[in-house]
Simulated assay, not measured.
Amino acid sequence: MNTRTRFSLRVAVGATALALLAAGCGTTTNEAEGGGDASVEEGFNVGLLLPESQTARYERFDKPYFEEALQELCENCELTYQNADQETAKQQDQAEAMLTEGIDVMVLDAVDTEAAASIVANAQSQDVPVVAYDRLAQGGVDYYVSFDNETVGQVQGEALLEALEEEGTLDDGEIVAIHGSPTDPNADQFKSGAMGVLEGNVDIAAEYDTPGWSAERAQEQMEGAITSHGAEDIEGVYSANDGMAAGIVAALKSAGVDEMPPITGQDAEVAGIQRIIAGEQYMTVYKEIRAEAEVAADMAVAAATGQEYDGGDEYTPTEVEDADGETVNAVLLDPVSVTADNVEDTIIADGFYTVDEICTEDYADTDFCEEVAGEQ
């Protein structure tokens, strides 16, 4: 069954229900604060707010995947989209403008999840349900879809330990841990998962939080760690995502390091994959963004039309608590560790990137690209 048609099949529980839906009447009452007056037949307006464009995934994948999924569920629906460019105040203004315009449901990936509580409250005051996307905004949202973020950190930590064991350097030196933005609750969960694996198994020379997930800031932090501890004693680096890994690699190269220690990442950015096949980054975490976007669209349509999202045949909803202790119905997807050994079986097999996108001129002579070129 096509996952993007699950909603329309699921809500049509008998001819009576379908007739009510076509007439604009929901067949059940959503447990959310508002919503429920829209209909798939007539269409409605969905507001999508994404947090930043520094990470490649949002513009390249999240937005188009969500738009595609929404159109398959509700061909008469309209999408209103804004990107906040990592600015909390800008996102609040964007949300207010969408609500003034008259959106029927909001899908929100918050820049600052605590500050986003005011966005959620404003939406609820206007009977507009909110789906938290990727990051759990405070304020009592209606639904939440993301990845199991502690598992993401655990996957990263386990991969780093495995790499250190393979190189025989687990007991020889120290690692540096460079975490994500302190305003992003996902970053805390990544950190918790990773540190739960790493602490006690490897010496940690230094730890940093990185405002805005900035690659430039990560580079500065890595330079500081090199100055304090010496590049020769740093046997590995925990990096919370691929963008920061780029800054870390730049700092190590500037320090004269030719052979990179194992470095982790996340988001499977094409530049991260290229560093992996070139031996400059050990791994990344691949998250099936298409599935996340499809679930978000499904949740949004359910909330807007007064239905209760139940996950269909493919996903099992769970419950999570936000920072205020509010219980939220959620779907948490599983992450995948990607190293040079399984790029072809994951990233390429899923169509996330093509061989041509990865094997550009600068990487054509890597073992990976020469091997896949020989297979074509």
Rank of each mutant, 00 (worst) to 15 (best):
D203G: 01
V145P: 03
V107N: 05
V301Q: 01
P64C: 02
K287D: 13
H179T: 14
T316N: 12
V257E: 08
F352G: 03
N342F: 11
E259I: 15
Q156A: 04
D298N: 08
I234V: 03
D242C: 10
G200Y: 13
D350T: 15
P335D: 14
E375K: 15
S228Y: 02
D322Q: 13
T16Q: 04
N2Y: 05
S8E: 01
A69W: 03
C359V: 11
V338W: 09
M1Q: 07
A215T: 10
V336D: 08
Y363N: 11
E96H: 03
E223G: 10
D350P: 09
L20T: 06
V270D: 03
R60V: 15
F44Q: 00
L73S: 01
V202Q: 02
E259N: 15
V131N: 02
A215H: 01
E87M: 05
L70G: 01
A215N: 04
V249F: 02
D171M: 08
E259F: 07
A303T: 04
D334S: 15
Y81Q: 01
L333T: 12
Y309V: 10
C77G: 04
A225S: 13
G196S: 09
V237N: 00
Q92V: 07
D267T: 14
C25N: 05
L332E: 15
V338L: 12
C369I: 10
R57F: 06
Q138I: 01
E165T: 15
T305P: 04
Q94K: 00
E75A: 06
D112R: 05
E361Y: 07
G14D: 05
V11K: 01
N30Q: 07
Q281T: 07
Y58S: 05
V301H: 01
L252I: 07
Q54I: 13
A32V: 01
C74E: 02
T346G: 02
Y286F: 15
L136S: 11
G325K: 14
P261F: 08
A330E: 04
L160C: 04
L49Q: 06
V155K: 11
V202D: 02
T360N: 05
I263Q: 00
G26I: 04
A300F: 02
A323K: 13
E319K: 13
I289V: 15
D242N: 11
E158R: 12
Q126L: 12
L21V: 00
M260H: 13
A69V: 04
L108D: 09
G153S: 07
I204P: 03
A19N: 04
E68N: 05
M260C: 11
G265D: 00
D188F: 15
D310N: 14
D313V: 12
E67N: 10
M195C: 03
I273V: 15
A304K: 06
T29M: 09
L333E: 07
G139P: 11
Q86M: 14
Y143V: 05
T16P: 00
F61R: 12
I273W: 07
E235Q: 10
D356P: 10
N76D: 13
